[in-house]
Write a protein that binds this DNA or RNA. Structure first.
Length: 224
DNA sequence: GCATTAACAGCCG
DNA sequence: CGGCTGTTAATGC
């Protein structure tokens, strides 16, 4: 259980909930910390609760049939995810690995379903989130086939700052260029070159072990 | 050719 | 020392 104040800090979707819903939500959530590089779950695990990243950064990844590590996407602090798995009562389909020391919030399944059955505000949040993710998925099919390396780097970065999926509070992200390459599906040298090009265009600033976003709109549209 | 992998020097905490 | 960056050389499609 967490306090009402804490709930408001770590779950932006709670802003539109009424008092009763807020009380249910906070009673159903616990927090847990993970060290950098830790597995929150492996593919095939049952991880029942709905999950949110409170601080830090994680990635969804898996291993290809050929044994190569494949990164699906990154998830920054502020995002809640896994509702598809919870709704369908399925095992997790990807590994969840922390890229930095990370604090997670876990909402038990019963609480999630209570909100799902009872809260209009919560359902509005879920729909908005599903809709945004679907838009990203469709864009993914397009860009995988049509865009050059700098655009393939720019979009996943812009997605990490999507204003529907995250409440903006921080334009800085601690992430290595190697991890950006993994998130983007390009090699480290290609990520390095692309990032410098994006920096030249004034869209972001490169820092040691991280980046700062300067022009989110420009990043999201890069390559169009 | 081009991009990716491997490898290495330099840098910073 | 360890992790990250920026390059270069080798390699594979």
């Amino acid at each position: 259980m967490i306090s009402l104040e804490r709930l408001r800090e770590i779950a932006f979707w709670s802003a539109e909930l009424n008092e009763r819903e807020l009380d249910y939500a906070r009673r159903g959530i616990v927090e847990k910390t993970y060290a950098k590089g830790a597995y929150i779950c492996h593919r095939g695990d049952r991880l029942d609760p709905w999950t949110g990243v409170v601080s830090g950064l994680i990635k969804l990844s898996t291993v290809s049939r050929a044994g190569k590590a494949v990164t699906i996407t990154g998830i920054r602090a502020g995002s809640w995810f896994g509702e598809g798995t919870v709704l369908k009562n399925e095992p997790r389909k990807y590994d969840l690995v922390t890229l930095r020391d990370t604090r997670m919030a876990l909402m038990d399944r019963a609480t999630f379903f209570w909100l799902f059955e009872n809260s209009v505000a919560f359902n509005r949040f879920l729909i908005r989130q599903f809709n945004e993710r679907l838009g990203q998925f469709i864009a993914l099919v397009e860009y995988g086939r049509m865009l050059d390396a700098p655009a393939r780097v720019a979009r996943p970065l812009a997605w990490l700052f999507n204003p529907i999926l995250y409440r903006e509070l921080e334009w800085h992200l601690e992430i290595s260029q190697e991890e950006i390459g993994l998130l983007s599906g390009v090699s480290r040298p290609a990520a390095n070159k692309s990032l410098k090009l994006l920096e030249d265009r004034g869209l972001l600033r490169l820092e040691r072990g991280g980046i700062s976003i300067l022009d989110l709109e420009g990043l999201a549209r890069f390559g169009d």
